[in-house]
Amino acid sequence: MPYLNIQTNLAVSEEARHLLLKRSSKLTAELLGKPESYMMVALKPDVPMSFAGTEDPVAYLELHALGLAADKTKILSKGLCQLVEDELGIPGERIYVKFASAQGAMWGWKGDTFG
């Protein structure tokens, strides 16, 4: 049920892509306290993006999860920004993270919903 979308203006090699997808799936599931078997991650590299008036390396992340508590967002932001900095070399001050919480009835899976 958690979905992490990572967009960056950087080109990402196939090897780096596989590693980032694997590590972000595991980390996000751990930070949320959810089984990784529900975790979905998308990576969109080479997206035309600018931030603060420059096209220097930048990333935008969106994390959607059922019942995401506001008191978890700081630790999630810290962990996800550190992951992107470690894996892609993008400094934290050039990363935005958007959090979105959904009710179970607003999230579908296997032809049904979680609510």
Rank of each mutant, 00 (worst) to 15 (best):
L88C: 08
K74R: 10
E87R: 05
Q7D: 09
P35H: 02
M49D: 07
I75A: 11
K44D: 00
L68W: 14
A69C: 12
G89H: 12
T73G: 04
L4F: 00
L63M: 03
V41I: 04
A29K: 12
K22Y: 03
L76I: 01
L66P: 13
A59Q: 02
L66F: 14
V41T: 07
K98T: 09
N9T: 00
E93T: 05
M40A: 04
F99R: 10
D46F: 01
L68G: 13
A42R: 09
L31P: 10
L68T: 11
D56S: 14
S24W: 07
A105L: 12
L27H: 09
T8S: 11
Y3W: 04
P48V: 03
W107F: 10
E85M: 11
E62S: 11
V58W: 01
G92L: 10
V97W: 03
T8L: 03
A11F: 01
A69T: 11
L32A: 09
E14D: 13
V12P: 05
V12F: 05
M106H: 15
D46C: 07
Q103Y: 13
N9M: 02
I6V: 10
A52N: 07
L68A: 12
K22C: 02
A16V: 05
M40W: 03
P48T: 02
K26R: 11
K34Q: 10
T113V: 15
W109K: 08
L61Y: 05
Q7T: 08
G104E: 11
L43M: 01
S24R: 08
Q7R: 14
P48G: 03
N9E: 01
K74D: 13
L10V: 00
R23D: 10
W109G: 00
P91Q: 13
L31H: 12
A16Y: 04
K34L: 03
A52Q: 07
L19I: 03
S101D: 15
L80D: 08
Q103E: 15
P91R: 14
Y3R: 06
E30R: 14
L76Q: 09
L10F: 05
E87L: 08
L19H: 04
K22R: 12
M106T: 14
S50L: 01
L31G: 11
E14N: 10
